[in-house]
Each structure stands twice: as C-alpha cells, then as structure tokens.
C-alpha cells in the first residue's frame, strides 16, 4: 500500500488538479482580493498621471501567457485612459499584435477614445535578434524605429506623436512582458539610460527575477501573473478576467498544497513502518 502511494502515478495528480480547476471554473465564486505592495505601487504610479500626459505601452507577450497578463494589460490601459493620459502602443513580439488590437477594441473604443489623438497603435517592430538595439534606439529616436503607425499613417502626421522624440517625452512606460525582449531590456536600456519610470506586468513564474529591480526602484510597480491582474482590476474597480480566474487559481494552489502535505504524510508513514 505504502509503496504504491509513494510511487503514485502522476496522472492521478493531473486528474485531480484538472477536476479541481474545471470545477471551480464551472462554479465560480468571487473572492475578496488583498492587494500586494508591488501592485499597489504600480497603481499609484499610473494614478499620478494627469490629463494629456503621454504613456508608452508595450505588449510583448503571446497567446500562451495571455490568460495571466492580458487582463493586467487591459486594466492598466483602462486606468491610464481614466486618468486622461494619451497612450502610444506597440509590440516587439509578432504574437503580441492581436492582443494589442484586442486591447484597443475592448478598452479604447468603448471608452470613446480617438485613434491617433488619444491613442496610437505603432504596430509590431521585430524585437528578436536586435531587441536591445530597438529598445535603446527608441530612447532618442522613436520615429526612426516606427516611421509609420500600424495603419500606415506617417509619424509626423499623427497628432499624439507631435513633439515626441523618445522615452523622455513619456511619463511612464508600461511593459507587459512575457520574456525577451521585454522588461529586463527596458530596465537595462530605457530606465538606466533615459530614467523613464517603468511599470510592468509579468508572468508569475518570471516575477521573482524582477523583484530586485522593484526593490532597487528600477521598476516602479509590478503585477505578477493572474493574481497581479486581479489585484489591479480590484484597484480600478473594474472586475475582468483576472478576478474571474482567481477562484480557480486559489483552488489549484490549495490542491498543490494538499499534495505536498499528502506526500509528506506518506513519507513519514513510510519511515515509521521501515523503523517498525
């Protein structure tokens, strides 16, 4: 019996986790969200925006991590617009473009924001091999990196871009990032050299890597994973996919903890029976 439990087929674990997550998605509950200090810092930074301030926003992620950080992107964009800021959006990931478009359709359009005046979609710039040079190049010459908008409008004819040369013309950079090029490169090139405040949203898995940057004030605020997204939605009082997924996430965490406890019980039981 004990040997069988010790070498439990992992597919049982998968099945139980699947049932727990599926069940909590089918029978959702809204949970009270406690806000982490890092998310609060992100909110506070964007809350300082004044009408007319310009914000740069990068959608550097793909579909695999979208459930985690796309809600944060929507919430941060909404918050910026609510503060009256003008948002310049772009992506260095080809997979990021659909999410950039979706954010415009889900947030900017319903809020009555006007294209090229209140926001602009600069589209996709290949950030692969030369991601770092693109990010650094944007610092002093945004026009050279994005000569036309995604719609094909020349840079000089876009009202929101009038007088914009580089990072220094923006109040904040919102980096929604799932890897490289992403928030690390922005810290290294945009913040270190041009001192642009960065607010980031990253996956929960990669968040620990960014904590030293937040503590060192190289990133002003950080939303990590679905929890961070939910907390940001709570702060702007606009529940979305983040809060909706929180119950399932909580149940999944409890299942994992239960397995850890169960594993230890088996371990101690096994030791005891060996001694006995």
């Amino acid at each position: 019996m004990i040997e069988r439990l010790q070498t439990l087929d992992r597919r049982w674990i998968f099945l139980i986790l699947f049932l727990a997550v599926a069940g909590s998605l089918l029978f959702p509950h809204t949970l009270h969200v406690a806000v982490e200090p890092y998310v609060q810092k992100a909110y506070d930074t964007l809350d300082l925006l004044k009408p007319g301030d310009k914000v740069l926003m990068a959608f550097d992620y793909g579909p695999s991590v979208a459930p985690e950080i796309h809600p944060a992107a929507l919430a941060m964009l909404r918050h910026s617009f609510e503060r009256g800021a003008k948002v310049v959006m772009y992506t260095l990931w080809n997979e990021g473009l659909p999410f950039l478009d979706a954010s415009i359709q889900h947030v900017a359009v319903p809020m009555g924001k006007r294209e090229n005046i209140d926001y602009v979609n600069l589209g996709f710039k290949w950030g692969g091999l030369q991601g770092s040079s693109v990010i650094e190049g944007m610092g002093s010459n945004l026009k050279a990196v994005f000569p036309v908008t995604h719609e094909g409008v020349p840079y000089d004819q876009v009202p929101i871009l009038q007088g914009v040369k580089g990072y220094r013309d923006f109040k904040v950079l919102i980096a929604v990032s799932a890897g490289s090029p992403g928030v690390d490169e922005y810290v290294r090139y945009a913040n270190a050299r041009y001192s642009i405040p960065i607010v980031a949203a990253v996956t929960r898995v990669s968040a620990p890597k960014e904590f030293p940057y937040v503590n060192g004030k190289q990133i002003y605020g950080l939303c990590s994973g679905l929890v961070g997204s939910a907390e940001y939605e709570e702060l702007i009082h606009h529940p979305g996919l983040g809060i909706a997924g929180l119950f399932a996430l909580s149940v999944a965490n409890l299942v994992v903890i239960a397995f850890i406890v169960f594993g230890n019980l088996i371990y101690f039981w096994g030791r005891k029976s060996k001694k006995g």
Partner: peptide, 14 residues
C-alpha cells in the same frame, strides 16, 4: 554577424 549585430547601439538625432 548575427551575434555582433545584437550589441546595443547608440542611435538618435541628438
């Protein structure tokens, strides 16, 4: 070439 072209660069009008 690819490796080297990834080095950070100085770019700008200023």
């Amino acid at each position: 070439f690819l490796f080297l072209s990834a080095s950070p660069v100085f770019a700008g009008d200023e």
